[in-house]
Computed example of a mutant assay.
Amino acid sequence: MRPARLTACIAAAAALTATVGLTGCAEKSDGKSGGGDGAVTVAAGDNSCEVSPKEFKAGHVRLDIENKGSQVTEVYLLMPGDRIVTERENIGPGTRAEVTAEVKPGSYEIACKPGMKGDGIRQSVKATGKGAVKALDPRLAEAVAAYRTYVQQQADETLPLAETFAQAVKDGDLEAARKAYAVSRIGWERTEPVAESFGDIDPKVDVREDGLEDGQEWTGWHRLEKSLWQDKKITDADRKLADLLVKDLKDWQQRVGKADINPTSMANGAKELLDEVATGKVTGEEERYSHTDLVDFQANVEGAFRSYELLKPVAAKNDPALAAELDKQFEALFTLLEKYRKGDSFVSYDTVGKADRKELSDGVNALAEPLSQLAAAVVK
């Protein structure tokens, strides 16, 4: 960790946001660090996305990203069909971020999304060669296999919970549907980066109203959340949406076992889950009607921890100081979340005050920075 830079990043976020929810802050540029040997540099502006080189060797690829614009941005490496290889969100103006990914030979796109909206400004890139990567450490192979089992298990366990939620909606039982809502989302929230990698499932089941693209119909959990808590009624349209949610989740359940999972995608996915906490849960934006944000928060952190736990044997050998810091920060964040327990769930997030939200945000920031280094640690 770099505490001074992290503190400055948090302070900047506090000045920019009323709830101090913005995190995932990248290392502040000092004008000296650059792409480094073998890195693909990405200069993201408000109206540009400059990539160099646009052709690179397949294998372990490091993206060195600098946000030269005035807005928070995010950068994606995409396969054809907008399947996500890796991403890095919440890159503040004037800051840098690095992400390491395992890239197979082929054609890709790098997308910069100023304001973290839309399809982004895109550049075509190509990975060449045979994609030779050193033989996978048997411990990493075991980690990937175990994580694949975990992801499938979460999908399998989510489906009956979602069916219970959908049935309550179809029965017109407002209270039963409210009770079933948050728990039906836990498995999804634990493994969301894997679902997002397919490109087309997440926008159907988990998009918020302000995340809709032009012409997109609003479907999924959050559309039903609005009906249950804001509208306080269930319509015939909601009953159809409940059936559609189950259909889309069955699609996810069937496809998740075919996801492209490797050690770096696991590590990057853990960081992405912390970004999810930062941009949606700490701010209260994710569950703006139900205020069940802390259920999602816990699930995101649990999913990130599972990835780290499986990768830890290799990460601890390659970078013991990093592993020690991650152990410390995961424990601290889980302990902090326990303050908000209520029975077998959590308090409503609208009862959590500004000071407590800042404490949660600071806990996420303290974990996110070392977690962003995990991918590099496992491929040393």
Rank of each mutant, 00 (worst) to 15 (best):
G118M: 11
A146K: 15
S107C: 00
G92Y: 11
A141I: 02
T158L: 14
R96K: 13
A26W: 01
K68H: 05
V40W: 04
T23A: 07
G131R: 08
K32L: 14
G38N: 11
I110W: 07
E98N: 11
S70G: 13
C25F: 10
N47L: 12
I84G: 01
G131N: 08
A166I: 09
A143M: 12
P114H: 11
T158N: 06
V169W: 06
C49N: 15
G35A: 15
A97L: 01
V72D: 04
G69R: 01
A146Q: 15
P93G: 04
G106S: 03
V99N: 01
M116P: 06
K28A: 11
A97W: 03
D156P: 04
H60D: 07
Y108H: 06
G35H: 08
A166M: 09
A145E: 10
A127P: 02
P138I: 02
A132G: 04
D37G: 07
V85P: 06
R88G: 01
R62I: 08
Q153S: 09
E102Q: 14
G69Q: 10
D64F: 15
K130G: 03
K170I: 13
G35S: 14
L136K: 11
A146T: 14
I65Q: 02
M79T: 05
C49W: 12
K32Q: 13
G34A: 13
G106A: 07
T128D: 05
R148T: 10
V151M: 05
A146I: 12
Y76S: 01
V42D: 07
P138T: 01
I91G: 04
V61Y: 02
I110G: 00
S107M: 10
N90R: 13
G115N: 10
G120V: 12
E163N: 09
E109G: 01
A168L: 13
G81W: 11
V72H: 03
A132P: 00
V144N: 13
T73F: 00
D37T: 09
A143F: 11
V103C: 02
E163C: 07
E27K: 03
V75D: 05
E87K: 15
K113M: 15
T164F: 04
Q152K: 15
Q167T: 15
R148K: 15
A101H: 06
I110M: 04
K117G: 04
G129N: 08
V75Y: 02
A155D: 05
D37P: 08
K57Q: 07
L77H: 09
I91V: 14
I91M: 12
Q152S: 14
I65P: 00
